[in-house]
Amino acid sequence: MSALLEVEDLRVRYATRRGSLMAVDGVSFTLHAGRTLGLVGESGCGKSSLGKAIMRIVDPHSGAIRLDGVDIGRLSGGHLRPHRRRFQMVFQDPAASLDPRQRIRRALEEPLAVHGRGDRSERRDRVREVMAQVGLHPEMVDRLPHEFSGGQRQRIAIARALMLEPSLIVCDEPVSALDVSLQAQILNLLADLQASRGIAYLFISHDLSVVQHLADRIAVMYLGQIVEIADRTALWRSPAHPYTQALIAAVPRMNPERRGLNRTRLLPGDLPAPQDPPPGCRFAGRCPFATRLCREQAPRLAEIAPGHAVACHLHTAPDGGPDGAAAPSLPPFLQKDTVQ
């Protein structure tokens, strides 16, 4: 299997009033063609900035973004344009990602026009074809975005991303703004498109259940860094990083037996200010297992099993080792409600 997208040591920096901020701080991963990498984390963890840097909406500070071997992180302007058709994006809020004054036909023909694809009738046919693919009636082509429901608008946004037949789509919280019944429609559509067209997704979401449903491989981000990355089986079977465990534990599940479980002790407090990340492990301040080593020295992302990497001293410290005694076992409340 070939690597479609290789991100290496990527950094994204923003200048803010309170000083410069490294929103993405040394992130590396690989995404294969036709697969889905889920990127999870809480707000402010840098997952959206990472997505925008890969889409070249914001410029990376350093590092490489290789799409089929070409470093698109360094290309600019006219050199980048021909590559743009290979990677597209679906945004969170379908109300904001469509120009309110643009009819659907224009919105969908725009990508073709920018890339000089086809003549008028060919473009028209392509619009009808893609609209049908995403489950929109081609008759609706002359309507304005506000005439559609939220779910339909997201279908239009997906159709726009599909127009140029990309091999990668970055989905930034594509269902977070939708009601549950519409979420299912969009998630099914994304799965169908992947099955039929072999598109790879970088699926950014804060919703673990959605990521579990869709992603082949999952990366967990905390304060600009990946703290754990693993294939779905490994991650859901044995989440290793204390943050991943806490995140999973915090998800409300449709299981009334969990009522009254006190899950707050596991993850007290808030994210530290990103302008001034703590020295050592960035999670140490909220981690119930933190040691002095954690507060002093930043852990590196290291493999604890083939394809399963964790940035945590408890797993990788010299005295612990991959199977060492220091590694946290699953907290009891995580063990308790395994398969329901």
């Binding site: 344009r81 021909p82 994006m89 809020d93 920018v114 726009r160």
Partner: peptide, 19 residues
């Protein structure tokens, strides 16, 4: 987001501003 979307399509600044 729709301006960002136009950027990801490879649209130039002039067209994004005008359109």
């Amino acid at each position: 987001d729709y301006v960002d979307a136009a950027v990801t399509l490879g649209m130039g600044h002039g067209r994004i501003v005008l359109l």
